[in-house]
């Protein structure tokens, strides 16, 4: 009588598959969470994204150990690179230099001149009066 295919003799092709898909999921989770945060207008450094990608690397490594296939190796290499790029980007590329300029708390703001959108000048002398001001230096249209 033929033995039924059951848990005592699992399909070797399925070995580690859960790790593989967990890795793919974790890798995509970081950018997805960041997109949600961005949509909710919360701008902060998404350290969780490279951390999740690193967990994804561990999952994919476990998947490769259980069964070595081209697709698992490819996913491992791709996700490892993705994690490395994210760590480098957040740790190094987006780092701002510490402020060492002439603006000092408790001192008058240095003389400056900019332009309003109608072309008229806007200078530091206009900061004196009945209103207080918040100068916001922004970058990028996002």
């Amino acid at each position: 009588m033929a033995e039924p295919a059951n848990a005592s003799n699992p399909d070797p092709r399925r070995s580690g598959r859960a790790f593989f898909w967990a890795g793919v999921f974790l890798c995509l989770l970081g950018p997805t969470l960041f997109a949600v945060e961005f949509a909710l207008k919360h701008l902060a450094v998404p350290w969780y994204s490279p951390a999740l990608a690193t967990l994804a690397v561990l999952c994919l490594l476990a998947a490769v150990v259980r069964r070595r296939t081209v697709s698992r190796w490819a996913a491992l290499v791709f996700v490892a690179l993705f994690a490395a790029i994210q760590w480098y980007g957040l740790a190094v590329i987006i780092k701002l230099p510490e402020y060492k300029g002439p603006v000092r708390v408790g001192k008058s703001i240095p003389a400056f001149q900019g332009n309003r959108s109608d072309g008229s000048a806007f200078t530091n002398s206009e900061l004196k009066g009945d209103r207080r001001h918040v100068l916001v230096f922004f970058r990028g249209r996002w």
């Binding site: 701002l96 230099p97 402020y99 603006v103 000092r104 708390v105 408790g106 001192k107 008058s108 703001i109 530091n124 002398s125 900061l127 004196k128 009066g129 009945d130 209103r131 207080r132 001001h133 918040v134 100068l135 916001v136 230096f137 922004f138 970058r139 990028g140």
Partner: peptide, 16 residues
């Protein structure tokens, strides 16, 4: 380009 910076200035033109 700009380094995002926020400066509070009081009505006397003094940085707070």
């Amino acid at each position: 380009t700009a380094a995002p910076t926020t400066i509070l200035v009081d009505s006397q033109g003094v940085v707070r």
